[in-house]
Write a protein that binds this DNA or RNA. Structure first.
Lengths: 344, 344
DNA sequence: TAAGTTTCTGTAACCGGTTACAGCAAGCCT
DNA sequence: AGGCTTGCTGTAACCGGTTACAGAAACTTA
């Protein structure tokens, strides 16, 4: 005996399915006696409504699809936390799909969501804008996170990576660094590209040039870059990695090689993963309120679904915060500059 | 014009819905000419099948529900990573629900899954076993992670916390520690209780006693405990926290207070979060293959769903690994014991 | 008491797919 | 040619809910 249906309950309570449905959904136009019989039958049979069937007839899934790139680390758990917070307060469920890099899977990931969700939150900094645009289902409300689909009809949240990276670069320059090296992220990743642009703009404004080493957002890339730099330390007095994990790799490598951080070389990252503040020296970085971003995305999507907004709000910027810690302290002069957080 | 249905496609291609369905599902008994017409109509209308409707008639949701406690940190992203890996290889989607601690929500969390998923992965170390048992839907295959429902008909994965904690304790004792302090987790949390038991058993076997301080798995609790210990440092030569985050708090507090780690006091944790290895000194801990556990849970659930197994496998143990790093190095004698990983 | 309301209840259609079954045409056999 | 397969196609029922609409019952009102 698999599971009771609403018709089983109706039979048991000796009423029609309509009455059962009405009782279950809290409609008021039901005689108390009927209501009672239905409630007893429901309890007796241990009946739980079949959400899928309900969704079909209501044309409302009660769930939203979350599409993320291959996930790693605290960044994602924070994002999901923020999304969940917002979603559960609205009685929405989260259908999670990871967009693996296997080619052709992008389409699948988006299409299997059709008829399962009321809307989509897509985060895909690694997918070319046009490919994404082509595959986003037309009728479904969607919020994009960090993927610019230019002129898209979708609400888009976008971290101001350029401003964040520039703020950190300005800070490095202001504290006397002149030979800044940037460890970049993947060239195909939008975040990475923008962060690099921020560094380049800020150094250019200060009349400096910046050396850029390749990276892929993983710790090992930071280690490799730092090792390359050890060959000629005179060429560098600051390392700014495109994310914290690479900064961690660079920081550890420098420490192991006996290079004083921050006195000899400053090290900075981007993201402010929880680990950053626990390192020795604590890592200066650029903070993104990841959970807040996730929550905003879901809130925006919910508004879209409820029709409280069209997507015309366009691109909403997420402003990162500069977080100065020990790893980029002033080299020696010690002017006692203030440490802490500031808006870029 | 919201979305094309299978009947629209049938009309466009001038065939019956049955034929459309057959083409879409790759049945072979369709004349090539018909197949072609259907494919053209599908493309023309941009038709994507409605998964919800499909699920209803197939009585198969193509998704599994993941129920987790309030999520934080790398532990969860790793777990989800492992689950996703296994699920996406089986074309299952993950419906994520967080079991908040708001009372009464437990039921809701489990019930809203009915008719939406083919099975459940539930991780709820903080929910009393009987409450969980009462609320698990009867007909739905389920895998439990770290929550013992005694005599339950469900496949259960269970980290051998006792063995892991005992292994770490034995290691501390073997390297000369005698005054061991355990910072415990919440008394209502199964993992926490078992870890404490492991410590107590191992110390008892060695004829030692252990001092237990309260904690709640958060970093602040580790700080508080360490501060309490600073009052009388002679009473302690090792701190073993019930998880890494508390160990981090304790480690930082000791360092700040100028207490030499590991020479004066050893510090150890449990979980092996990625951060552990990056601290100075690197934190000894007990590793759980979190992603592997998630993958095993989903694989087990999939087998259950496909009927390849009944749940009678009972409780599957997950064996943690002892990871010895600098924070529990031998105090001074320096016998040059091997560092690294071993099975408990 | 009959007509007119109001309140409750039940029947049946519908959401968008799948598929058992029946029907039809073509091909093969004797 | 008649009978049998074989192969393709379409009709309609079904999955498990919701709800428009009609009908019955109860209650007013004149």
């Amino acid at each position: 005996m698999p599971h009771a249906t609403i018709r089983d309950v109706a039979r048991e309570a000796d009423v029609s399915v309509a009455s059962v449905s009405r009782v279950l959904n809290g409609h008021t136009n039901v005689r108390p006696a009927v209501r009672l019989r239905v409630e007893q039958a429901t309890a007796l049979l241990g009946y739980v409504p079949h959400a899928g069937a309900r969704n079909l007839s209501l044309a409302r899934a009660g769930a939203i699809g979350i599409v993320l790139p291959d996930l790693h680390g605290e960044y994602y758990s924070e994002l999901l936390r923020g999304m969940d917070r917002e979603a559960s307060s609205r009685d929405l469920q989260l259908l999670l799909t990871v967009m693996h890099d296997r080619p052709g899977r992008h389409v699948t990931a988006l299409q299997t969501m059709r008829g399962r969700v009321d809307g989509l939150c897509v985060m895909a900094p690694h997918i070319p804008a046009d490919e994404l645009a082509a595959n986003l289902p037309a009728g479904v409300p969607a919020v994009l996170i960090n993927c610019t689909v230019e002129g898209s009809p979708h609400l888009t949240l976008h971290v101001d990576n350029v401003a964040g990276a520039a703020a950190m670069t300005d800070h490095l320059i202001a504290t006397g660094r002149r030979r800044i090296v940037h460890i970049a992220g993947p060239a195909t990743n939008l975040d990475a590209v923008e962060r690099r642009r921020g560094v380049e703009q800020a150094t250019a404004r200060a009349g400096l040039s910046v050396r850029v080493l390749p990276g892929d957002f993983h710790q090992e890339a930071g280690i490799a870059a730092a090792n390359a730099l050890l060959a000629d330390l005179d060429q560098v007095d600051a390392i700014f990695a495109a994310n914290d994990m690479m900064a961690v790799g660079a920081l550890m490598t420098m420490k192991r090689a006996g290079v004083a951080v921050p006195d000899r070389v400053a090290v900075a990252g981007f993201d402010d993963i929880p680990l950053a503040r626990l390192l020795t020296p604590a890592l200066s970085t650029v903070r993104i309120d990841i959970a807040g971003m996730g929550a905003r995305a879901v809130a925006g999507l919910a508004a879209l679904i409820d029709g409280d907004s069209d997507g015309s709000d366009g691109i909403q910027p997420i402003l990162p915060t500069l977080v100065v810690r020990d790893s980029t302290d002033q080299p020696s002069l010690e002017t006692g500059h203030s440490k802490g957080e500031r808006r870029p």
